[in-house]
Simulated assay, not measured.
Amino acid sequence: MSEIILITKEELTGIIHNSLKEALEKFNHLPKEQPKPDPFLSRKETAKRLKTSLVSLRSWTKAGLIKSYVIGGRVLYKESDIEAALTEVKTVKF
């Protein structure tokens, strides 16, 4: 037979509070996911990815179509900036 236990509202609140506190402490000890750094690509890698020449890439950079970064005298491009520069062209069918 099951046993009936009478507890007060404060005792029940305390039991629930302690149980939740223990569960949250276990959850907080889990390793947090680190955001992946956005890799830089060289001019050659970027031109190869866009299937274009280095001359075209330079003119697109000068025109402001693709953002570049100069680090240690080298021109580099972020992968996310390359993806952002690509735009979809909608064609109209007649």
Rank of each mutant, 00 (worst) to 15 (best):
E22K: 15
S53V: 04
A47M: 03
L20M: 13
F27A: 15
L50D: 00
H17R: 14
S2P: 08
L65G: 08
T52H: 04
L6S: 12
R58M: 08
A47E: 01
A85D: 03
L6V: 14
T46D: 00
V89D: 09
D38P: 00
S80I: 04
A85Q: 04
L24W: 06
K32A: 10
K93Q: 14
I66A: 02
W60N: 08
N28D: 14
L30W: 04
V92G: 09
L50F: 07
F40A: 01
A47G: 01
G64E: 06
I66W: 00
V75L: 04
E25M: 12
F94H: 14
V70I: 11
S80E: 05
E79L: 07
T8V: 04
N18I: 08
V89F: 10
V89Q: 11
L57H: 02
F40C: 00
K93C: 09
G14Y: 03
W60A: 07
T8W: 03
K26Q: 13
E25P: 02
E33N: 08
S56N: 15
E11R: 07
S42C: 02
K21D: 11
G14A: 11
I15R: 13
S56W: 08
T46N: 01
P35W: 03
I82V: 15
G64D: 06
A85T: 09
F40G: 00
I16Y: 07
M1Y: 09
H17V: 08
L24Q: 13
R74N: 09
V89M: 09
T91V: 12
L86M: 15
A63W: 05
E25K: 14
S59M: 12
I7A: 08
I82S: 03
S42Q: 01
H17K: 14
S53K: 04
K32Y: 05
Q34Y: 09
F94A: 15
K93D: 13
L6Q: 12
A85G: 05
L6N: 12
K9V: 10
A85S: 15
K67V: 09
P39W: 01
A85M: 10
E11F: 00
T91G: 14
I71D: 05
I4T: 15
R74C: 03
Y77T: 02
G64K: 05
S80Y: 03
T61S: 11
E11N: 06
K67T: 11
L41M: 07
E10L: 06
T91R: 14
T8A: 06
S80W: 02
A63L: 11
K48A: 12
G64R: 05
K48F: 05
G64Y: 06
L50M: 10
I16S: 06
K78V: 02
K67Y: 01
N28I: 08
V92R: 11
V75R: 03
T46Q: 00
V70Y: 05
Q34S: 10
L24N: 13
I82P: 01
T46R: 00
N18G: 07
K51L: 08
K90E: 11
